[in-house]
Simulated scan of single mutants.
Amino acid sequence: MQRIERRIDVSEAAGLGEPVEMAVSIVLPDPADIPERPVAIFAVPGGGYSRAYYHLNFAGHEGYDEAAWHAARGTIHVAIDHVGVGESSIPDLSRVSFQTLAATHDSCVRQVAAMIERGDLAPGFPACPGLFRVGMGQSMGGGVTILAQGRFASFDAIAPCGVSAIHTALPQRSAEEFELGKRRFAEVSVGDASQSHLTTSHEGVDYVYPFHWEDVPADILEADMVGGYPIRRTAPAFGSLTIPHCAVQMMTPGCFAEDAARIAVPVLVAVGERDTCPDPRAEPSAYRASPDIGVFIVPRMAHMHNFASTRELLWRRLHGWSRMLAAAA
């Protein structure tokens, strides 16, 4: 198993009139463990987080590194900072639109997939022709995955995790608080670059309850929240100080409707028991062109899936689902 860092030029796809690169971490498995039809998971993080969300490492705790878990089972794992996040280029965040996110993500995925198929990533690592590409993202990353697939058909299957194609909303401790939280976004319009998480009021919103189940270790919870959220004053190693302004638009009802309706590949809707998808069992209705739609609700898991004690249940489902599809394709 080896980890490779790359920066991928997506300037043309971004169309911002300036150089734009995306930071990528690729974990390669032992070639002997690669299945007959190679599988790569292209994973993107949620708002306020970076690609290191898929490489979590906490002192005194084991088993939080999702990328290593998949690679140990023969899957190539590609973690990507989308434009405006983490170590990728940070242009004027008000200029990063849904189209920017979709186009740059598609370009990055296609370039990395071509490297994998040609065997260009590392000496001794074989070419992997016929790569089965799985698009996976958590929260905002799930939204980016929906946008890329709906507009560019980037993947052979997608797993939008912790996001709703109908209406993404933060759970709260009471029904009244939940409705109040949803109303914060009532005046946000898709395409309005003047709105962002910086201009939206977060007063009275509980982020710990929707993000973390009660059994998350106190030191891990502290590491995530100590610098503030969603406006981070400081960012942990797995965090990002920047979030594209259009992320707030992902909290509006129907913002993904047209893109989700165009998706014609298998879809796995994966959410925690307490998550930002108010009615997971209604989600298949948004993917009208998909031939295969699954819904997986992980017990004792809140919105930040990889912090949950039950995280491996999700990883196992992603592994088994992607291998099944690749073998049948």
Rank of each mutant, 00 (worst) to 15 (best):
V295L: 03
P123Q: 12
L28T: 11
S139W: 00
A43S: 12
S322T: 14
S201E: 00
G86E: 00
T104H: 03
S196F: 04
W321A: 11
G86Y: 02
W315D: 13
E283D: 06
A127I: 03
S88F: 01
F58E: 05
G254A: 06
G17H: 09
F98Y: 10
V163Y: 03
D224F: 14
Q111F: 04
A193G: 03
A67E: 00
D92K: 07
D206M: 04
G130N: 03
G294D: 10
R232S: 09
H77R: 07
A235I: 02
I34C: 05
D292W: 08
G48I: 05
S196Y: 02
Y53P: 07
E258L: 11
P299G: 11
P45Q: 12
P126F: 05
E18Y: 06
V265E: 00
M250A: 12
P291K: 13
E187D: 09
S240D: 00
E222S: 15
V78A: 05
V248M: 04
C161N: 12
E87C: 08
A32P: 00
L268D: 02
W321E: 10
E273A: 13
E283I: 07
D156V: 10
A270Q: 09
E222N: 15
G254D: 02
L325F: 05
A169H: 07
G181L: 01
F152P: 05
S194L: 03
G162S: 13
A14W: 03
L221H: 13
A79Y: 00
P19T: 11
I166V: 13
L56P: 07
D224M: 12
E177P: 00
G137E: 00
A71T: 08
R7D: 09
P38D: 05
F132V: 05
V134Q: 01
R281F: 12
E214Y: 13
S164Y: 04
D292C: 13
A328M: 08
